Amino acid sequence: MQHKPWLASVPLRSPADITVPTRDDVLHALYSAIGSDAAWNGVLRVIAAYFNANISMLVVAGKGQRDRSFYAAWNHREEAARAYSDHWWEHDVMLSAVVKNGLFVKGMVGRASDIITPEELHASRYYQEFMLTMPAEHFMGCVLSDGRDEALAPPMHLSFFRKPGDADFSDENVNQLADLYPHIHRAFELHWQHRVAQEQLGVFHQSLDGLDFGVLFIDPTTRVRHANTAAREMIARSAGLPLLGGLPEHAPRDGELARLLQSCAQGKGGAVSLGAPGNNLFAMALPLAAPQTTVAGDASASVMLMLVEPNKRPDAALDFVVRAFGLSKAEARLLPMLFENMTPTSMAQALDVKISTVRTQLSAIFAKTGTRRQQELIRLLGAVPSVQRFPF
């Protein structure tokens, strides 16, 4: 990315009370902060010391910046941050000059003295009534995001200030910031992407917790990466089922449930019923991605494991059977009637269809589930055929 410094020339001051970090210290702080909002205050502390700045901030541009989803600052008083966020941003003569000159563009690096004279700054209410209270006079900054790419962060800028009486930021400082900019931008871009992913994942997990059946996501090493509330409660109630292994923390390494998960590693998936009728769990496993083979030749895959308690949720159990055996909608509507022991004639009357249609659909159900008659099919709620049922 090309950087466009605004030019000026003033010697750099070294602070007497702060150890000046090296460039490597700055880079280490930047990349160490990826994934942690709270760490960015420390990053700004390090970069501010590197530039001998007494205030630094990384904020969303515009009104209400203090209350935006991201805000980081060092040595900037809360009342000053609030005052700027609520009022003074509209009177910021430096920001106005940047925008007026078309300089609020991602990749822009510079200082205020290149676009506004000291006389203009000192004559403004913004300087007299706000900046002096910070206290701040000299400004240097860069634009990390101008808001043009919706996939990235909103318009954001990184700002550094020096107090009245200090020297302005030098050409060397501007060049140093331009040199650091690719790292600052990359580190924050990675942080923002991680942040968005975590927010989306949080929403996804909350939606899973609203379900009344269990959902677990298991990685290729058999570690459970997430178990929703229903899954944890079911597993706690079914602690006597040895085939659950170490759930909800990690999947079993042997037994039928383990073999079911192994079938997912081959891209097959399937279903199994665990426990005795009346106190059992339906478990259905589906591979989430194409299986991958390790250097040792073993297949592995991420798996979604779903759990249903048929005695507590017969409707969910029916849906489970429908999905497990790939029944059509027309076939699925016969299941509740089967469990009520209705005859094919009664089903045809209830659905207002020909009895031949019902018999055809029943034949399809029996073929898909591996059963031969109605009573065998009814026992699906206690033991899913074609897989096996396992006692305590």
Results as ranks from 00 to 15, higher is better:
295 V>Y: 11
372 R>Y: 04
61 A>R: 10
103 L>Q: 13
174 V>N: 10
286 L>P: 07
254 D>T: 14
149 D>V: 07
318 L>K: 10
236 A>H: 05
124 S>C: 08
270 G>C: 00
185 H>Y: 14
391 P>M: 00
247 L>S: 01
146 D>G: 07
266 Q>F: 05
96 S>G: 12
62 G>H: 05
204 F>K: 09
252 P>Q: 02
273 S>W: 01
128 Q>W: 05
274 L>F: 00
368 K>H: 09
225 R>T: 05
50 Y>P: 03
101 N>F: 03
271 A>G: 07
330 A>K: 15
196 V>P: 01
229 T>H: 10
259 R>G: 03
104 F>P: 09
289 A>S: 10
255 G>I: 01
317 A>V: 10
375 Q>T: 11
243 L>I: 00
262 Q>E: 03
272 V>R: 00
43 V>N: 02
85 S>A: 11
171 D>Y: 13
51 F>M: 06
23 R>V: 13
109 V>P: 01
159 S>L: 04
282 F>A: 00
362 L>G: 11
374 Q>E: 13
227 A>Y: 12
324 A>V: 03
252 P>I: 02
219 D>L: 02
12 L>R: 15
223 R>C: 01
389 R>I: 00
85 S>V: 13
319 D>Y: 08
153 A>G: 05
389 R>V: 00
293 T>I: 07
182 P>N: 06
70 F>H: 11
79 E>H: 14
24 D>S: 15
120 E>Y: 10
10 V>H: 13
212 D>H: 15
350 A>L: 12
22 T>A: 07
188 F>S: 06
53 A>I: 08
190 L>A: 06
128 Q>T: 09
20 V>W: 12
73 A>R: 14
81 A>Y: 06
106 K>R: 09
252 P>R: 01
176 Q>I: 06
107 G>P: 03
273 S>D: 00
10 V>M: 12
20 V>F: 11
377 L>N: 06
213 F>E: 12
28 H>T: 15
246 G>L: 11
278 G>P: 04
204 F>I: 07
352 D>Q: 15
265 A>Y: 09
224 V>E: 04
94 M>V: 15
364 A>S: 15
262 Q>R: 12
79 E>Q: 12
8 A>R: 15
343 T>V: 08
118 P>A: 07
253 R>T: 01
317 A>Y: 08
24 D>A: 13
218 I>P: 10
53 A>G: 04
191 H>G: 03
56 S>G: 15
233 E>S: 10
279 N>E: 08
117 T>D: 11
322 V>L: 05
270 G>K: 01
45 R>M: 02
